[in-house]
Design a protein around this nucleic acid. Structure first.
Lengths: 232, 232
DNA sequence: AAGGCTGATTGATAAAAGTCAATCATTCAG
DNA sequence: CTGAATGATTGACTTTTATCAATCAGCCTT
């Protein structure tokens, strides 16, 4: 296994506990490739030929229906996507495109399913990963159904703040138009939402966010670990 | 294993392939109980002590935040719920309540995790189940984010029609207020949505739905297997 | 058969969110 | 350094959805 990137993949929870042999044979069939920005890697509805691992860059998972489209999630290094489709040998439910120049490992789904049958540690890791994914989507669903767009924006800011270390100044990690789509609103409304949060001590200029009055914002946003926590 | 209900549970995909010994030991710790309607079985945020199996009746999975609540899904016999929380040993993300008099098997989560570690067939079945659950939520998410409420109602009717056999007359399987909540709208708007679908040949009286013009409705609803199919 | 309960519907209104068009800001290629 | 291109913002307006209040319908109990 000459490729040093495989060591990074090996460290992922998904692959760290499996037998050496099995990991090696998984990687033998895999290939790593560089993609420019804005390349559509997979298209929803197509058969799931590869499990993808983002090594560097970032990938947008999105979906389209009847001329509309929406961002479902962003995948950042190092993690996988399209695991559920791979396991079920079912069509992709989402499309994926690179947001920037990205390095991506492609592991044939067939191999993943074969090793999944052979390696119990791998199978267990997949369970944990899928349970995690499931719970993340449930949280997103609750966010969408229980909160207004202003509340979603407020809670997103608090999550992002925590993610960035917890200080009062931090950066948005999305393009705003895509953030709007992820949050289920239009870019115009996101702009207005940022303004609407000014009374709670929020300032957004460009990609830089300042939270002047943490208590005020939290009192409005009412963050809840059952919706907003990253783990568990 | 004296209890004949265990044979029904055994037939579930989740349990059908596991070793006899392991199934028996799972069931030894389990108990089956009757609950009246409108009983809250579990509350979000609590530790996941039991995997639940609905044997008869039906269960509403719902969630609450800041005084609002929303129905996430309905569980009907025979299937399980709260699998992801059980596996991850994490708090429930949703609450559950019986919709009617229901018979429910409770399997200690600890046992499920123990057997999961010991029985590879069981672990694999869990993977399949979780992948299925994950994909269902993704579909629901797409339904919510890509469609207006009128479109959601139209597509729900088409799904329900197919589920009921495909004929032009069928019954709603929810109370309307709960259907509204599942679809992410108010009961008032659901009423109006039914009226709004009259031009497409839809008649709803009480729980009875008639679709006079299948082609018209489908042309409006634009159902898509990547959102609306039950399987895969 | 008469209330009384619950859920459904309707109408009026308000709030939230989307659309369209114009303008502003920033970035980046030449 | 300039200007084209892209994304962000703003304002005016429309559409969608929610809210509130009243009424209606079905069903259950007595």
């Amino acid at each position: 296994m000459p490729n040093p990137e495989y060591q990074d993949i090996r460290k992922l929870d998904l692959f760290s506990q499996m037998a050496d042999d099995n990991f090696t044979s998984l990687m033998r069939g895999a290939y790593v490739q560089n993609f420019p920005a804005q390349i559509e890697l997979i298209t929803e509805g197509e058969p799931s030929d590869f499990l993808h691992v983002v090594i560097s860059g970032s990938v947008d998972l999105f979906s389209v229906w009847n001329g509309r489209d929406t961002s479902m999630a962003t995948v950042r290094p190092i993690s996988t996507f399209i695991l559920a489709a791979t396991i079920k040998d079912a069509p992709y439910l989402m499309s994926a495109r690179t947001l920037e120049k990205s390095r991506i490992a492609l592991i044939p789904s067939q191999d993943v399913r074969a090793i999944f049958d052979a390696d119990n540690n791998f199978a267990r890791a997949i369970v944990t990963e899928l349970a995690q994914c499931y719970r993340s989507v449930i949280k997103a669903q609750k966010d969408l159904k229980l909160r207004t767009s202003l509340e979603r924006v407020a809670n997103y800011l608090l999550r992002q703040q925590r993610h960035a270390g917890g200080g009062p100044v931090f950066a948005l990690d999305f393009e705003k138009r895509r953030l709007a789509s992820v949050l289920g609103m239009t870019p115009e409304n996101l702009s207005r939402a940022f303004k609407g949060l000014q009374p709670y001590g929020v300032k957004v200029t460009g990609t830089r966010v300042t939270i002047d009055n943490q208590a005020d914002l939290e009192n409005f946003a009412k963050p809840n670990p059952l919706i907003d926590s990253f783990k568990s």
